[in-house]
């Protein structure tokens, strides 16, 4: 008589040698059953609260759904309305792209350059500079302070300083004048843009093998800029890809800053972003279908950007 475990082990052996690919897969799955158990708790939460929302957004985009009645399928009506009937969405899309173009690439390049400059410093003082540049991104909702710095009356620090130095006679209404609002948002977002991506760059640069630099110096690299382009950047590609993802996320998700500084809705919607618009329809008007369509547009734009950046990173150092 063979025991139960012996029997199952023999069946597994049979399966793994079977000609049926499904049985072979089943045998592999069964072999790694403990691994699946380890993965399970995270996978459940991750799938329900991170992946499912994305899928649901894409599906709900085709429905009318106010949460009270059952969702009703309406085809592409939401997207058609977005493109043709919703002027505010077009303004929001324009603003989002402007903010994303100004803060995304600029914040990304700035994060890398600052990390690289810090890495050029003697080892002892590096942590101090890392702390200074990283702090704004973790300091809670401290960007509210920009509302006081850029306050529209002459108590605002920027206005007071400019008036003191005689650049302007009248205080500029930074937070309510559409001419200046984008500028303030960009400054504020850039201030907080040295986040996890920046830390990734700092760490990647720090842990780089010195032999590459020694070899490149012998091969004729003459200064730090050549070294940056031909040695450092190609070696940093994995970190650069990670940083790119985080930059895209940050650049396209700008919304709290504009609400905190310019209110909701902002003057002439000049600081209205796609995420603001999404919240407007989702939480104020409870048109979840329409809000989901907005989210889907945003997902597609973000994935497209990520693909484009990865394609560009492949050309680095050539």
């Amino acid at each position: 008589m063979e025991s139960r475990s012996q029997r199952s082990a023999r069946r597994l052996l049979d399966w793994s040698r079977s000609r049926d690919p499904w049985l072979r897969l089943l045998a592999r799955v069964w072999r790694y059953r403990t691994a699946y158990l380890f993965l399970l708790p995270f996978a459940v939460v991750f799938l329900v609260f991170t992946v499912a929302p994305v899928v649901i957004s894409m599906l709900y985009g085709f429905t009318y759904n106010n949460l009270l009645e059952p969702a009703r399928f309406i085809g592409f009506a939401n997207y058609i309305k977005l493109a043709t009937h919703d002027d505010v969405f077009l303004i929001a899309l324009k603003n989002t792209i402007v903010f994303a173009v100004l803060t995304g690439p600029l914040g990304y390049v700035l994060s890398f350059m600052v990390a690289w400059f810090i890495n050029e410093l003697p080892k002892r003082i590096r942590p101090l500079f890392v702390l200074i540049f990283y702090s704004p991104s973790i300091a809670g909702s401290i960007y509210i302070i920009f509302g006081i710095l850029f306050s529209g009356d002459f108590y605002g620090y920027v206005n007071a300083t400019l008036m003191n130095w005689g650049f302007i006679d009248q205080p500029i209404n930074w937070l309510a004048d559409p001419k200046y609002m984008a500028f303030v948002v960009v400054i504020c977002v850039l201030w907080t843009s040295m986040g996890a991506g920046f830390l990734s760059f700092v760490a990647g640069l720090r842990s780089m093998d010195r032999q590459y630099f020694e070899a490149s110096a012998i091969d004729g690299v003459r200064n730090r800029w050549q070294e940056l382009w031909y040695v450092t950047l190609p070696l940093m590609k994995p970190q650069l890809m990670f940083g790119a993802i985080l930059s895209i996320t940050a650049a396209f998700s700008i919304h709290e800053v504009t609400i905190a500084l310019m209110g909701f809705p902002s003057t002439e919607y000049a600081a209205h972003t796609v995420v603001n618009h999404l919240w407007d329809y989702g939480y104020l008007r409870f048109d979840m279908g329409y809000a989901s369509a907005i989210a889907t547009v945003l997902f597609l734009v973000m994935i497209g950007c990520n693909k484009a950046i990865n394609a560009m990173l492949r050309k680095v150092g050539k």
């Binding site: 991170t50 929302p53 994305v54 957004s57 993802i245 895209i248 996320t249 940050a250 396209f252 998700s253 919304h255 709290e256 995420v275 999404l278 919240w279 989702g282 939480y283 979840m288 809000a291 989901s292 989210a295 945003l298 997902f299 973000m302 994935i303 990520n306």
Partner: peptide, 9 residues
């Protein structure tokens, strides 16, 4: 890439 703000609805 999909931050919590976008998937919040």
């Amino acid at each position: 890439m999909f931050s919590a703000t976008i998937t919040s609805i």
